[in-house]
C-alpha cells in the first residue's frame, strides 16, 4: 500500500471524506480540513505510519500531495533512526 493509499484510508475513515476526492492535488482546506484538523492528523500519521513527529507541524502543507511527501520524509528519517523519541512526556502525578 502506497503512502497515498494509506493516507486516503485515514482521511476517509476518520474524516468521512470520499476517497475519489483525495487526489494529490486536492487542497486540504477545500476538503474541510482546517489548520486544527491538520494538527490532529499528525497524531493519526504517527499511529498509522509508526513514526514519531518531534518538530512543529510544517505550515506549508496545502495539498494531499504535500502531506504524502511530508510522510515520506518522516519515513525516510525514521528508517535512518533520527526521528525517534520515547513515547509520552514526563508529567508529575
Amino acid at each position: 500500500m502506497s503512502t497515498l493509499d494509506q493516507l486516503q484510508e485515514i482521511l476517509h475513515r476518520d474524516y468521512g471524506i470520499a476517497r475519489d476526492a483525495l487526489h494529490p492535488d486536492a487542497a486540504l482546506e477545500t476538503l474541510g480540513l482546517d489548520s486544527l484538523s491538520v494538527l490532529e492528523l499528525m497524531f493519526k500519521i504517527e499511529d498509522g505510519f509508526a513514526v514519531k513527529i518531534t518538530e512543529d507541524t510544517p505550515t506549508d502543507l496545502v495539498t494531499v500531495g504535500d502531506v504524502v511527501r511530508y510522510i515520506d520524509g518522516l519515513l525516510t528519517r525514521t528508517a535512518a533512526g533520527s526521528a525517534h523519541r520515547p513515547a509520552g512526556i514526563a508529567v508529575s502525578p
Binding site: 486544527l36 494538527l39 490532529e40 513515547a87 509520552g88 512526556i89 514526563a90 502525578p93
Partner: peptide, 16 residues
C-alpha cells in the same frame, strides 16, 4: 490524556 495516559497528545480542538 495528560495525567492518566501521560501523553502529550492533547486534541488540537480542545479549546474550541
Amino acid at each position: 490524556t495528560l495525567y492518566a495516559e501521560r501523553s502529550d497528545r492533547i486534541q488540537p480542538y480542545s479549546v474550541i
